[in-house]
Every structure is written in structure tokens, then in C-alpha cells.
């Protein structure tokens, strides 16, 4: 895992969550901007997953492999599912769904970092 990438993903996901909350507060439905942002976040998460898998295959990485794989898979799955579920709701509650995902991702990436550093 790369520290800066993980940190960037955490910050970016939080920004998405806050913008989503703002959109909900302003009573607007999902826009293209949020979807594109989710897409970019997903690409970043996939890159991170690639690094994790590469490290594990190469024999590096923490002792708690199973949990790390679980979190890695979770982070990759959540943004597309959230996008699908949020787009289906054409009201202010669509972006609120994205906000849920936006808050979940930082928590999971944070846990991945802890496990990686052997603190898990």
C-alpha cells in the first residue's frame, strides 16, 4: 500500500461525501459531477487494490491477510453499487446514498492502513 495514495483516497472520498450532503441539503438530485467523481474514486481504489494484491502475491504485506483482502474487496465494490443505487432515486435522497458510501470508504481505507502497518 502506498501512504500518499491512501491518504488521497480518504480525502477525496470525504470531499465526495460532503458535496453529496450539500446537494441533499440544497434539495437537488444526482448530477453528473458526483458520478464522475465516484468514477475517479473507483479508479483510485482499483489502483490501490492492484498494489495490495501485487504486494500479497510478492509475499509482502501484513500478517492479517484475510481481513486486508476483505477490506480491499469492499472498497472496490461499494462505489459502483452506490452509484447504481443513488442514480435510481431521482430526488435529494439520491446524493445522500452517495454520501453514505463517501463516509464508508475513508473508514475502510483507514482500517486497511492500520492493518498494513501491523496495528490491526
Amino acid at each position: 500500500m502506498i501512504g500518499p495514495l491512501a491518504t488521497g483516497l480518504i480525502v477525496f472520498a470525504l470531499v465526495i461525501a460532503l458535496v453529496s450532503l450539500l446537494t441533499t441539503a440544497l434539495n437537488k438530485s444526482m448530477g453528473t459531477v458526483l458520478l464522475v467523481a465516484l468514477g475517479v474514486l473507483e479508479i483510485g481504489l482499483l489502483v490501490q487494490a492492484g498494489f495490495v494484491v501485487a504486494a500479497l502475491v510478492g509475499g509482502e504485506g501484513p500478517a492479517d491477510t484475510a481481513t486486508l483482502i476483505g477490506y480491499t474487496a469492499g472498497t472496490v465494490v461499494i462505489p459502483p453499487v452506490a452509484a447504481f443505487w443513488g442514480v435510481g432515486e431521482r430526488s435529494r435522497w439520491g446524493p445522500a446514498v452517495i454520501a453514505v458510501a463517501g463516509f464508508a470508504i475513508p473508514g475502510m481505507v483507514g482500517r486497511m492502513l492500520q492493518i498494513w502497518q501491523g496495528m490491526g
Binding site: 452506490a82 443505487w85 443513488g86 435522497w93 453514505v100
Partner: peptide, 20 residues
Amino acid sequence: AGPGRVLVAVYGIFALAAGA
């Protein structure tokens, strides 16, 4: 629908987290 959509999302994430 509506706010329920958000509840479903939260429950989904918790199902994933607790299940994994």
C-alpha cells in the same frame, strides 16, 4: 424510496462489513 433509499444503503454496507 426517498430517505428509505439511504437506509437501505447503510444497511447494505453494514451487512457487508459485519458479514466479511
